[in-house]
Design a binder for these strands. Sequence first.
DNA 1: AAACACCTTCGAGTGCACTGTAAGGCAAGG
DNA 2: CCTTGCCTTACAGTGCACTCGAAGGTGTTT
Lengths: 139, 139
Amino acid sequence: MAEKQYRIGEFSQLVGLSTYTLRYYEDQGLILSQRDDNGVRFYTEHDIRWVGFILHLKGTGMRLNELKRYVKLRAEGDATIGERREMLQRIKNEAEAEIAERQLHLTVLEHKIKWYDEKQAHTIDDSETFHDYLQRFQD
Amino acid sequence: MAEKQYRIGEFSQLVGLSTYTLRYYEDQGLILSQRDDNGVRFYTEHDIRWVGFILHLKGTGMRLNELKRYVKLRAEGDATIGERREMLQRIKNEAEAEIAERQLHLTVLEHKIKWYDEKQAHTIDDSETFHDYLQRFQD
DNA sequence: AAACACCTTCGAGTGCACTGTAAGGCAAGG
DNA sequence: CCTTGCCTTACAGTGCACTCGAAGGTGTTT
């Protein structure tokens, strides 16, 4: 039983990327496609997994240029595993730092929401500025 | 004792935004500046706090257009507090959803790093694909 | 007198990641 | 035969948030 083959339109639906983007990624060397006798692209389950994986990498904040570099290393074989590992580790660290930073910003936003609530409920002095209010959480 | 006044160059250093960006933000209505007798911008501590706050909002993922809308509402007075609160709440929800999503992508990246480690240490079968490996964590 | 920091308007350039159009062509299905 | 879906190259357009430069100006400091 041969594996199911998908043409670009169907594949596009499956992976959630437009056909434009799929061709663009192929241009950029991020994906490969096989061709039938007429030169028409087709993809298999294997390609679905690969696109899924690069979308995970993208989802962590990895940029196309880094992704290209990663794919290039991958094509060079197991000798580059160390380098790829370091790359992913760096991406991981950066992503975690960004998340942490974003969470810090979020706490201020949360305080502001609380401040609005208390202001609306008149449980804080009408003249207390948000800045003064924030001071109460500084320690 | 009058409050210290900062001209744009110094202020730029203090808040970490270029003078270009400060003027741009002013154009966009995100910041106000006072002017001396010669029309030269100056800022005070109050402005430092305000820029600090909008950078927190930006840091949560809020876009300039939303920020503009927020600032506009703010200028309309306390009557818009409810709307501003809802706005920040929505931003908060979106930011949390994005963080959660990013963390999901990160777990896959972490698995990939582990997979590299195990592959390098030859503790996994050389023929086991990352996809097969990942299956072991699916439940 | 020159250097410096600021002011204005206006418009162009940057980086990223697409997204779309034009203009041509091929092959299969109703 | 015509529509649909695919193919190609090449290039323009989009959205976002800056970033910069030109060309002219003012006021303060050395």
